[in-house]
């Protein structure tokens, strides 16, 4: 039962970090560890986006055509869009459980800045959603006859890009966590903001297929991530405060 799991870890985690004025690093690592433990105890929740990713990729050859040549031309975009949707799907649960059982309010009350703590939560989301999706994508690339030489770039671009996706998406998740049915609204808010990442992520894979320089795309993905890292935590923190108080 998730509920008993949560209280058990809560007690276990609280003991060593009970002092209210720990350093920033201590608070960051404690939040990170707590969320990792919580999520790893509910493996199915971690697996669901990956299964979703695989199923969506299966739909395309069935819906369009099994012709490898056709699939190879659209594979970079398909893989990126499907991974993006899988990451989006997992966003709703990012703050949901903490909101429901009140831990989010405790997070707001800590003396450490909420932006930093939400950054820890987003890091966990990326570690258990974005990174596995990136590692899984080459496998699905084989099934879509993705041309050789682009597999490493696919995984790398997804790993870099999904970190931005997690950061941007967390803003939407934080804004909608207080709403009882925020799922569709969340996608409506977040998807338009995902477009630059999609353009440069899929572009990197395309460039690798055509043999063009890949570094420019990856550099821009990195730049997007840097911008998201600077701004998103503050927006997430502000949104969480709105959701809690509303």
């Amino acid at each position: 039962m998730p509920a008993t799991d949560r209280t058990a870890t809560g007690a276990a985690m609280d003991a060593p970090h009970a002092e209210p004025h720990g350093s920033l690093g201590v608070a960051f690592w404690a939040t990170l560890k707590r969320d990792l433990v919580l999520l790893l105890r509910r493996r199915s929740e971690v697996m669901n986006p990956l299964v979703f990713f695989a199923i969506v990729i299966t739909l395309f050859p069935i819906g369009i055509s099994p012709d490898p040549q056709l699939l190879a031309t659209i594979a970079p975009g398909l893989l990126w869009v499907a991974a993006l949707l899988a990451a989006l799907l997992s966003l709703d649960s990012l703050f949901r459980a903490d909101y429901d059982d009140g831990s989010l309010e405790q997070l707001l009350l800590t003396p450490q800045p909420l932006a930093l703590l939400s950054l820890a939560k987003v890091t966990v989301h990326w570690l258990l959603t974005g990174l596995p999706l990136a590692l899984m994508a080459p496998l699905l690339g084989i099934m879509l006859a993705l041309p050789a030489g682009s597999y490493a770039v696919l995984a790398l671009s997804l790993a870099l890009g999904s970190a931005s996706l997690s950061l941007i998406g967390a803003i939407g998740a934080a804004l909608t966590v207080g709403l009882s049915r925020g799922g569709v609204l969340l996608s409506l808010l977040v998807l338009p903001l995902y477009i630059p990442v999609l353009i440069f992520g899929a572009g990197a894979v395309q460039a690798a297929i055509f043999g063009d320089g890949v570094m420019a795309h990856l550099a821009i993905l990195g730049a997007l991530l840097a911008v998201a890292l600077i701004f998103a935590p503050w927006a997430i923190a502000a949104s969480l405060r709105i959701s809690i108080n509303g």
């Binding site: 804004l175 502000a238 709105i242 959701s243 108080n245 509303g246």
Partner: peptide
């Protein structure tokens, strides 16, 4: 809440 959320977005 609606006002502040819309402002942030």
């Amino acid at each position: 809440s609606a006002s502040r959320a819309a402002s942030v977005l």
